[in-house]
Amino acid sequence: MALKSTEMFIDENETPESWWVSAVLKTIRAVALVCDIITFPIHLLLQRPWRKRALSRRIKARIIDSTSDTVTVRSVCEPCELHVRMVRDGVGTMEAMLRAAAARYAARPSLGTRTVLSEEDEPQPNGRVFKKFNMGDYVWRTYTDVEREARHFGAGLRELGCRPRHNLVMFAETRAEWMVAAHGCFKQSIPVVTIYATLGDEAIAHGINETEVSTVITTHELLPKFRKILAKTPRVDTIVFMEDQLQKTDRDGFKPGIRIVAYKEVVEMGANSKIETVPPSPSDTAIVMYTSGSTGVPKGVVLSHRNMIATLKSFADAVPIREDDILMGFLPLAHVFELLAESICIIAGVPIGYSTALTMLDSSNKIMKGTKGDATTLQPTCLTTVPVSTPWNQFN
C-alpha cells in the first residue's frame, strides 16, 4: 500500500526524467558553491575589492558655485598632461582642436579607411551564393590631410549656399568622411545636426524640419531613402552624398529642383574657393544631437563647442590613452559617445581605423572566406563599446 502511494506521488508531480534533471542541477550548484568557497580567498588577494569600493566612493568633485538654475563643480584631481596641453594650446572649440592636432602631428596617420577591391559571389555549402568583399589594406589620411580636406569641404559647403550658424544635417554611417565633413562644418561655424542612420522616414523628416535644414549630408547607401523623405522636408534643396568605393551613385528620380552633389565634388569646389574660414566661438552651437527615438519622437540636444571641449578634457582625465594606441571606430558617430571618443584620439595623436559590423571580424558577413576582417588587419588596441540593451545592440 505504501509502495502504491509512492508511485502515485511520482506520477502526479514529477517524471523520472525531470527528477534526474533536478538532481543534476542540485549537484552542479553544490559543486559551484564549493568552488566559490575555495577560490574566494584567492579572489580577495588578487582583486582587492575593498580598494575598488574605496575608489568608487571617494570624493571626485566639489561644488564651487550654484544658482537657482545651475550647479558648477570642479574635479579634485589634477588634470592630465593632455588636458593641460589643450589649455596651453588655447583649444576652446572643436575647430581649434583639429588645428592644434594637425600642427602637432602633421604627417602622422589620423583617419584610416580600408580599401574594397571588389565584391564577388561566394558559393555556400548549402548551394546559396552570397556577395562578399575582397578587401585590401587600410589607406590613411594624415593629420595634415584631414585638416586640409576639412577646410576645403567647409568652403565647398559655403559655395553651395550653406551659411555660418545655419544648421546642416548629417545622416550617415560612421566613416572617415563623416568626421572630416563635421570638421568642415566647424570651420565655417555651421552647426551639425546628427541623426541616426537607423531611424525611420518619419523620425528623419522630423529632425530635418525641426532644425530648419536646407542641406543634408548622407551616403551612397542611404541616398535612395530621400526619394520619399524629400516629400516631407520642403526646406531641403541640396543633398551631399559620400561615394561608394565600387558602385556609381544613381542621382535620378529625386524631387525636381534638388541638387545631388558628391562629397569629392564639394571638396574640389572648396579647393578652388576663395572663401575664408569662419571660426566658431566657444558659445556657438557645435552639435544638435538627436536621440535614437527609443522613448518616443527623437529629441535634439544642443551642444556648444564649450560643452564638447569641457567633456574632452574630462574624458582625457578619466580614460588613459597613449600615442601608440590604435582605435577601431565603428559605433555611430551620430552619438556623442563615439564622437567624443574619436575626438580625444585626434587630439592625442591616436590613429582611427574605421570598420563596420559587416567587415569587422574574419567571420563577419561580408568578409570572403579565408580573408581577413578589419580587426585582424588593423590590430587595434582600443575601441568603444556599449551594453547590449542600448539602441546600438546591432553593433555588438
Rank of each mutant, 00 (worst) to 15 (best):
P391G: 08
T390A: 08
T15L: 07
A106G: 01
S281T: 12
T285G: 01
R259Q: 14
I190N: 03
I208L: 09
L25W: 11
T359C: 07
L327G: 00
H220I: 02
P387H: 09
T142H: 04
N126F: 09
P320I: 05
R29M: 12
L45N: 03
E78L: 10
P320F: 07
P298N: 06
I28E: 06
V336H: 00
S294T: 15
E78A: 12
H152R: 07
G92F: 02
T359R: 12
A155W: 01
I190C: 02
I229T: 10
M94R: 04
T359Y: 01
K274D: 13
P387A: 08
D89N: 12
L361C: 04
A357I: 11
W20H: 11
T215Y: 09
N393Y: 14
E120L: 15
S283H: 12
E338M: 05
P298L: 07
T144E: 14
P79H: 01
P280Y: 03
V21N: 09
T215R: 02
D325L: 05
M368D: 00
D317Y: 01
I367E: 00
V240A: 05
T6C: 07
I326V: 13
E243A: 13
H220D: 15
E342C: 14
L46P: 00
L339Y: 10
A107R: 11
I258R: 02
